[in-house]
Each structure stands twice: as C-alpha cells, then as structure tokens.
Nucleic acid binder design. Structure first.
Length: 281
DNA sequence: CAAATCCCCTGCAGGC
DNA sequence: TGCCTGCAGGGGATTT
C-alpha cells in the first residue's frame, strides 16, 4: 500500500478529521516491534494531547501534539489509518470497519467525532512518541522528498555507486518516498534498465529520471494512489493508479509500448519489473 | 565504506 | 479439502 503518494493521501484525508481534536482515550495491543514506544506509555501519555498538525516526511507521518511531543507513524507494508465509520476494505460491501485483531492502536477523542484506528496485519509499521526536542534517527537520515527530486541529487548520489539504479531509487537516504512500485514505474517511463549500475547514468538520464519520478508521484496522487490488496484512504475508498501501471505486477504481459513481455527480476529482495526491449541495459 | 543477505510478520494465491 | 511454496506498497540489523 503505502509509498509516498499513498502516505500523502492518508495525511490529506486525515487532517480535516483529526486536527484540533483532543485525545481522550487510547487502546493499544500487546508490545511488539510495531511499538517503538511501548503501548503502556502511549496509553498513559497520549490522553489530553491535542493534535496540532500532521505532516508527511517521506513515507512517515508526524503529528505535532499540544504538549510539544510528536507522534511518529509509519505504515510499513500493510498499515492502515482508518477513521471510524469507514467502509471495510475486504468485508461485505457497505459494512463499516470494526476493530479486529490487527488493529493495534485506537485513539478516541474528547468530542463526539470518529475514532482513529491504526491497523497493520504484518506489523511492519511503526509508532513512536517523541518527547519535546527528541529526534528519531530514521527521520534524520532521510534524503530530500521525492516530490522535489532533482537531477543534481540523482547525479550526485549516483557517481560512486556500483549498485543498481533501482536500489538507489529505493534508498531513502538519497531521496525519501519512492517504493517498489514507483521505482519500477519511473524506470520504465525513463526507459532505464533497473539493473544498470547507478554510476553508469548520464547527467541527462538523471535529469530525465528525476523529472519522471516527480511526475509519476504527482500523477498517482491525482489518481488517488495505488490500491492493490488493501484500501488506502482513511474513509475506505480506493485509489485508481494501479490501473495505469506500465510494468509493476505485469510480468509476462505485453509492454504497453512495444508488446514485448514484461520481465521480472529480483533486486535487493524486491521484485522488479521492466520491458527488456524498451529498457535496454 | 558500500553492497548483499537475512529478518521481522501475516495472509493469500496457486500448484499438487 | 489440505499442504506447501512463493510472494506482498518497508526498512533495520548483520554480514561480506
């Protein structure tokens, strides 16, 4: 589910519903590495806090709280932030979401508005409460946001890299927000083979690739993001960008440009899709 | 150092 | 129907 466009959309959908609201009660499940801050601490510390702002940083969401503390959230692979009343993603059409065994955190507010559920089946997501002035190394290490990716950043990062260009795009310290889908889609549009050594890219290829990354991410946001198995929006609605995938998840299917079968290779433990004709090594 | 490998966790689809 | 394998929008720790 969540790469930059999806996280951005979750933030946009959530803001009107949670900003300015005061947390009254917190329910959190058993400790797991989902909780960088213990559930007990969250239950104890969050009530009384008002959510002042919510910003996206790469694939993270960071909520500023009234006490000066901050709540850091990451959706991992299957994380979902769901507003009470949302349509259930996989259950019968028209059924509102109800808390289940994968719902690890519930925020109830002092007003009568909807609760907020944080659900994550695989528990790769993260939640951490940052004390005033406290920082998180994960945030500190992030590169510039991928929506503002420039040729300069890509070209600079690529110079001494023997590693594959796709790995560079996925490296959040180079640029933050690109995940497996948008890396494949961007390289496809840029007609660059994902296994090319990053250092083999020319300056003009970097310029083109940076522009394409920005455009793909922007277009996906406009289309409501990509929804594959789970929904993404806090109200339960789905995105539509997955219908426009050129290569992602299309192994064996014809390239939309030349008809050649889309190939799949594994790069850095991740499936990588490309057209072997349009994206020459 | 940089780069490759393994691991965290759960559910689902497909082959037999 | 059931079992088994492989795979999944992420990223951190460990190894080479």
């Amino acid at each position: 589910m969540p790469e930059l466009p999806e996280v951005e959309l979750v933030g946009r959908h959530l803001r009107p519903h949670i900003l300015g609201r005061r947390i009254r009660h917190v329910t959190a499940t058993a400790p797991s590495y989902f909780f960088l801050t213990s559930p007990a601490t969250l239950r104890q510390q969050l009530p009384g806090e008002t959510i002042r702002s919510l910003e996206r940083i790469g694939k993270y969401l960071l909520a500023q709280l009234s006490s000066g503390r901050r709540l850091l959230l990451h959706l991992g692979m299957t994380g979902q932030l769901i507003l009470e009343g949302a349509q259930s993603p996989r259950l019968v059409h028209g059924t509102p979401f109800v808390r289940d065994k994968h719902t690890h955190l519930v925020l109830e507010f002092a007003d009568s508005g909807p609760k907020l559920y944080f659900r994550d089946t695989r528990k790769f997501g993260k939640v951490r409460l940052l004390m005033p002035g406290e920082s998180d190394p994960r945030l500190d290490k992030l590169g510039p946001d991928a929506l503002t990716l420039t040729q300069r950043i890509l070209f600079g990062a690529s110079r001494k890299r023997r590693a594959k260009v796709k790995s560079m795009l996925l490296d959040q310290t180079v640029t933050a927000g690109i995940g497996n889908i948008y890396a494949d889609e961007s390289l496809s549009l840029a007609r660059i083979h994902p296994e090319r050594p990053a250092m083999s890219l020319t300056e003009s290829e970097c310029k083109n690739l940076a522009r394409i990354v920005r455009r793909v991410l922007t277009r996906s946001i406009e289309a409501g993001g990509s929804s594959i198995d789970d929904y993404i929006h806090p109200d339960g609605s789905k995105g539509g960008f997955q219908q426009r995938f050129r290569v992602y998840g299309r192994e064996g299917e014809p390239c939309r440009k030349c008809g050649t079968a889309v190939s799949r290779v594994v790069i850095g433990q991740r499936s990588s899709h490309f057209c072997p004709n349009c994206q020459r090594f």
